[in-house]
């Protein structure tokens, strides 16, 4: 299924429009999740409870027609609870593989930092390789496959923060802020008039997994000029030179930024990337990949602030 930039942009807009029927005022989150999905990446969403993180994932699943599964991560969750396991069948006297919830196209990993490191690792391995190995047998995951993981930034007791190496597996980290007053009023008004977030039957699918795969393929073909690549690399390298950052972005971050920018460009109906496509994705792609120095942490500096500073000091490619 081949595709043009205009068709990509039209499909992107179609999905967004359908999601906007349910999601109110979370355009950035919706865009970020879509970019993560179409760039063949995974999305980490951080925000307080009740801001619509789960609803976004569920709505996307309905709108895109993807198979959706949800795992509520808890401290006692085992890797096999995620990946599935082989169960002894008495009738056939054989072990039969019972797939876990990871065998979905859109997986919502709720409160991923509640599970111990071993379980997290099982998921993260699947995210990276897009296959699951159980009892020595590798099983491919369906296409497209995207994990939308959430975590709560407030509660830190009894959590297992994701190590930097594992955070790096997420293409983007999206932070969900409280909605503005008027948006919140609209949300409450919708509920007052009978909206039920658990019932998404009125939402129809406007795309197919096949179309999403085609969009993923097209995004990879979007042209990236050398100067844009240089700009992306410079951005990543700047995070390594920054005095307030102890651990900068890795080359994988540069690649993630490139992929995200390609999707943004395609969503605008262009078959080439401009600096304008890169800049809005810098913070979502880099914020979880940089580790601030303790001095900076004590001063209350956030990764976003440091990234903003870096963006301000780096000239964008302009003239030829």
């Amino acid at each position: 299924m081949s595709m043009t930039a205009e068709q990509f942009a039209e499909a992107f807009e179609r999905i967004k429009k359908q999601m906007a029927q349910v999601i109110v005022g979370q355009e950035e989150l919706v865009d970020g999740v879509l970019v993560g999905l179409l760039a063949r990446g995974h999305v980490l969403v951080e925000g307080a409870p009740g801001l619509g993180k789960t609803l976004v994932a569920r709505t996307l699943a309905v709108v895109s027609g993807c198979a959706f599964k949800r795992i509520q991560f808890t401290p006692d969750l085992m890797p096999s609870d995620v990946t599935g396991s082989s169960v002894f069948d008495r009738q056939s006297s054989t072990f039969t593989f019972v797939p876990g919830p990871i065998f979905a196209q859109l997986l919502l990993a709720d409160e991923i930092n509640r599970a111990p490191a071993k379980t997290q690792s099982a998921l993260l391995e699947a995210m990276q390789d897009r296959q699951v190995t159980v009892d020595g047998t590798s099983r491919l995951l369906p296409q497209p496959f995207v994990v939308v993981a959430t975590q709560n930034p407030v509660e830190s007791q009894g959590t297992y923060p994701l190590p930097e190496a594992q955070l790096d597996r997420f293409l983007v980290k999206l932070t969900v802020a409280d909605p503005p007053r008027d948006v919140e009023q609209t949300i409450v008004r919708n509920h007052a008039s009978g909206f039920d977030p658990s019932d998404l039957r009125h939402v129809t699918s406007v795309t197919t997994p096949e179309e999403l795969v085609a969009m993923q393929s097209f995004a990879q073909t979007v042209r990236v000029d050398d100067s844009i690549i240089a700009y992306i690399v410079d951005l990543a390298r700047k995070t390594r030179d920054d005095r307030a950052i102890e651990l900068g972005a890795s080359p994988r971050a540069s690649i993630a930024l490139l992929k995200a920018a390609q999707v943004v460009a395609a969503s605008e109906g262009r078959a080439f990337v401009t600096p304008d496509d890169v800049k809005p994705m810098v913070k979502p792609v880099l914020r979880h990949r940089v580790l601030l120095h303790p001095d900076a942490q004590l001063q209350g500096t956030s990764p976003d602030e440091r990234i903003d500073d870096i963006l301000r000091t780096l000239p964008v490619p302009r003239a030829a």
Binding site: T274, D276, K279, L314, V316, R318
Partner: peptide
């Protein structure tokens, strides 16, 4: 400003 894109 040098850091601003055309779109900005």
């Amino acid at each position: 400003e040098r850091h601003r894109t055309h779109g900005e």
